[in-house]
Nucleic acid binder design. Structure first.
Length: 154
DNA sequence: CGAATGATCCGA
DNA sequence: CGGATCATTCGA
């Protein structure tokens, strides 16, 4: 089993967030974002990368958190500490594809477990990265563990 | 149908 | 900064 510690995330909302895939209403691809919380939303971009999100809002309300970086803990054979630093690399490291969208993250082959609380002083905030200017909100909706090797380069 | 585009990454 | 590379989405 492969395990890793999540160290970088970004929040995406629904109708009020122009950067969100849910901005213009549900589509077959984004349906999980409008579903019940605690499930996965995996999408394919740039013809070669997958990204993993955790659906967060109640059923019928769009909202998700993009997992952008993690530190490998176990199950990864001889990988660099930065192997999961970045949303595309994280999904690839876990072998995720669109087959893994809409999975129950509490009980399925893909789960998220509780972990020791990260001290507030280790958490940094910033604006989200990788968005086109038109969609940027300039809200500090990216959170990451300061100094972690699992944080994507920006 | 065709065309545009993107919540990325890497290398120069 | 540009290229890789293609599913998804939107307009005609």
């Amino acid at each position: 089993m492969r395990t890793a510690r999540i160290v970088e995330v970004e929040a995406y909302l629904g109708g009020r967030d122009p950067a969100s895939h849910a901005y213009r209403g549900p589509t077959p691809r984004t349906a999980p974002m409008f579903g019940p919380p605690g499930r996965s939303y995996v999408y394919f971009v740039y013809g070669m990368y997958h990204c993993l999100n955790v659906v967060t809002e109640s059923d019928g309300v769009a909202g998700a958190v993009l997992l952008r970086g993690a530190e490998p803990l176990a199950g990864f054979e001889a990988v660099e500490p930065s192997a999961l630093a970045g949303p595309g690399k994280l999904a690839r490291g876990f072998g995720l594809t669109t087959e893994h969208t809409n999975l129950d993250l509490v009980r399925s082959i893909l789960t998220i477990r509780d972990a020791p609380t990260v001290p507030t002083w280790r958490v940094a905030r910033s604006v989200r990265v990788g968005l086109n200017e038109h969609a940027t909100t300039n809200k500090p909706w990216r959170l990451y563990v300061r100094g972690s090797s699992g944080v994507s380069r920006t």
